[in-house]
Simulated scan of single mutants.
Amino acid sequence: MNKADFTENTGEGDRSIAMTGSLSLSCLGDLPDRLDLLEGDFARIDLSGIDHIDTVGAWIVLRTADRLKAEVVGADGDAGRLLDVVSRVDEPAEAPHKAEAPIIRILLQIGDAVIATAHTMVGLIGFLGAVLISAWQLIRNPGRFRVNAVVQRFEVVGVAALGIIGLMSFLIGIVIAQQGSVQLEQFGMEVLTINLVGRLTFRELGVLMTAIMVAGRSGSAFAAQLGTMKLNEEVDAMQTIGVSPMEALVMPRIIATVIMMPLLGFYASIMSIIGGGFLCALALDIPPVTFVQRLREVVPLTDIWIGLIKAPVFGLIIGMAGCFQGMQVRDNAEEVGLRTTAAVVQAIFLVIVIDSVFAVFFTWIGWK
């Protein structure tokens, strides 16, 4: 290939440069240095006489044309396309931002988290409004209520969870009785272990641990199912044919969770009582008859009512959190996993917050 070169032409009042040879990296030689020595303004850089041009040559031509305020002319089809591509990607790179101080970065992350939490809470409140509207529509039009869908969710939320919730509650009852008896033994009051197991189970732990378990099982399932349907555009298809996703997908899941939570909570309390009684019989030599008789004396009916009152509210929170996060899925499958995790975390957090509110409220009204 011919070595790259150029000639400077001075015409009638304008100056131009005519390139010759091969404008490729192996043939450039000292051409860039000689072009850098040119000064003033030029009208044109003519490429009609070149044999070949590569990316480096195109960049040198464009850089020289920009510096000398010259117009590049005479490029054939391939050379013209190469010059166009190089000109579009030859943009100045932004200098990296100076690293922020750790305390500033932490504060910014906290601020982002607070804003995201606020947006989520506003969205959840709006979703609650949509649920209430859908519930009112179902009350006004009972024929639109999907009984089969609700019954199917009964099995998923309730029947399928009996095994794991029962085992978990039984073991929790054993742990409460064992740890309580160890502490009460120091005062010779091991019999009060029955009080501890009975009141703590019916009032708090039975329904609370059930809510956490249901949030992990059913809340995550709701988010994953609805999120997958969103990705597959099944929800959009339902809206297109005139079927309300809130009535067809969301309400059956929420209704099933609200109805099943009191039953599961009471079942979990009974299993926990059985676990506590089992430990008392083995470790404390308290007969089952004595355990049950003492339980009836020390556990007021209000403790049972407290658990049954809190359970439907927890079920509403779990169902709403799972369905809300599932309906927020966008774009890709990764979003399904993120929303499923968010549904579980959100449900458990809200359940614990509401439980603390209930604890203060029931104490305030005298249900101690």
Results as ranks from 00 to 15, higher is better:
M1D: 13
M1C: 07
N2M: 07
K3E: 12
G13C: 11
I17L: 09
I17H: 01
T20A: 03
L25W: 11
L25R: 13
L28S: 04
G29L: 13
D30W: 01
D30Q: 10
P32E: 08
L37P: 09
R44W: 09
R44N: 02
I50S: 00
H52K: 02
D54W: 00
D54N: 02
G57L: 11
G57T: 14
L62C: 05
D66L: 09
K69E: 15
K69R: 15
E71G: 11
G80H: 06
L82S: 02
V86G: 03
V86Q: 02
R88H: 04
H97T: 12
A116E: 15
T117G: 14
M121T: 10
G123L: 06
I125D: 07
I125S: 06
A130S: 12
I133K: 02
A135D: 06
A135I: 05
Q137E: 14
L138T: 08
N141C: 00
R144A: 15
V147R: 09
A149D: 01
V151H: 01
R153E: 01
A160P: 06
A160R: 13
L162K: 01
I164G: 04
I164P: 01
I165V: 08
M168Q: 08
M168G: 03
S169N: 15
L171S: 07
L171W: 14
I174K: 09
A177D: 09
Q179I: 12
S181M: 04
S181K: 11
I194C: 03
V197L: 12
T201H: 06
E204Y: 10
L208G: 02
T210A: 05
A211E: 08
A221P: 14
F222T: 12
A223Q: 10
T228N: 11
T228K: 06
M229Q: 11
N232W: 10
E233N: 12
D236Y: 06
D236P: 01
M238D: 03
V243S: 01
S244D: 04
S244L: 03
P245I: 03
M246F: 03
L249I: 15
R253S: 10
T257S: 11
T257M: 13
T257C: 14
A268P: 05
S269N: 08
S269D: 05
S272A: 14
G276M: 03
G277Y: 10
A283T: 06
F291V: 04
V299E: 05
D303K: 07
I304P: 00
I309C: 04
C323M: 05
F324G: 01
Q328I: 11
R330T: 09
R330K: 15
N332S: 10
A333E: 02
E335F: 13
V336G: 00
V336D: 07
A342L: 09
I348H: 10
V353P: 04
F358H: 09
T363W: 12
W364N: 13
I365Q: 09
W367P: 00
